[in-house]
Design a protein around this nucleic acid. Structure first.
Lengths: 198, 198
DNA sequence: CCGGGAATTCATCACTTGCAGAATTCAGGG
DNA sequence: CCCTGAATTCTGCAAGTGATGAATTCCCGG
């Protein structure tokens, strides 16, 4: 049989598997994305996926990590001062989803899988907790930063679910700046306002 | 073989399958809940599930409908007048999740499946759209009711995801009244406030 | 030029899944 | 008392799942 064995020339196979896995996890979630489908989209034998990444769980974790620079985001959001930080946070959040085609499958993959898979749920918790949002909020609000972080996080998750995952109109096709104007102030209240009374 | 054939006496088999399916869909989502597992928990042969409900999709749709009386909820929330309606909505929402053990698996089932299954996503859209939340909001806000409904819906979905599905602390174990105080005012702004500027 | 290690494919295993059909047993009406 | 129809179980199929192991082919350092 002439088709087996190593291929001549350089091969970006590992990376092609990685991006194929990102896209498949993003569209279908952890359970829906099969290793055979990932391999087929990468134009590769399924056994190669195991060869490079081991188990399916390890493939998911290897491929679903967000390249976020918390310090840079913090500077960008807090640079102009505290007022308006809610709107800037929403604008930044929307810009990541709308304009960064490389991170979007990662985000959708995590959210799509988090409702079912414990590992993905842990990733999502980390993103909103110590590793992510909490660092932002901690720099802004000294009073009850954990609660403020999860309040902001809940609104962000709901926005992502409605606009990008489930596709609820008119949220899915709303103008970004309209959303900034509508959701920014509540976010700012979560960040800097009084949480005790209306 | 002596174990086949009809059983004597009355049999609530269909209902036991239904509640078993609700619980399984609620814990595991549409894909995770297998027909064999649903049948096993109901103490019943898997073929009976097909006998009563046909395909798995039909079982899901038969069992995942919310018994919500929109008019009653509307009266309860708007009875005391418009002010404070945001807090009352959150309080009602939390009470359904926290205190109604029969509807909770339905809610978690819909949310857990909506990220992956188109039918479940459609159920969720209906719940926030014409069939559900929109009717509430339409009675309150004549100005841009669709946008207001999905804004409220996004915050409710995020709250459910964080508190009940993914389990993000301190949201998951927060005092309900603290959440009413924190999230009520933003909800009320979505319902009655000015959406154009901060 | 040759030999070890990496890349690639094939074949397959052990399971699980949704679903269908035949066979068996009970209930209730004529 | 029979007979139609409903309830229940068994068996099994066809497809798909993650994962493994052997075999083949190429690259590259000695």
């Amino acid at each position: 049989m002439a088709h087996s064995g190593r291929r001549p020339g350089e091969s970006r196979t590992r990376e092609r598997i990685a991006t194929s896995a990102q896209e498949a996890f993003g569209e279908l979630g952890f359970d829906g994305a099969t290793i055979r489908l990932i391999a087929a989209r990468a134009g590769v034998d399924p056994a190669l996926v195991h060869h490079y990444f081991g188990t399916k769980q390890r493939l998911f974790l290897s491929v679903m990590n967000l390249p976020f620079d918390v310090a840079a985001v913090k500077a960008q959001l807090l640079g102009p001062g505290l007022p308006g930080v809610g709107g800037r946070l929403i604008r930044y959040f929307l810009s990541v989803w709308d304009e960064q085609p490389s991170v979007r499958p990662i985000l959708t993959g995590i959210v799509r899988s988090a409702t079912t898979d414990p590992d993905a749920a842990s990733l999502l918790r980390d993103f909103l907790g110590r590793q992510g949002l909490f660092q932002l909020v901690g720099a802004i609000a000294p009073d009850r930063p954990e609660l403020r972080a999860v309040l902001v996080g809940s609104q962000l998750i709901g926005l992502a679910m409605g606009r990008y995952i489930v596709g609820i109109e008119p949220l899915a096709s709303a103008n970004p700046e309209d959303l900034v104007a509508a959701i920014g102030p509540p976010i700012e209240r979560y960040l800097t306002g009084d949480l005790g009374s209306g």
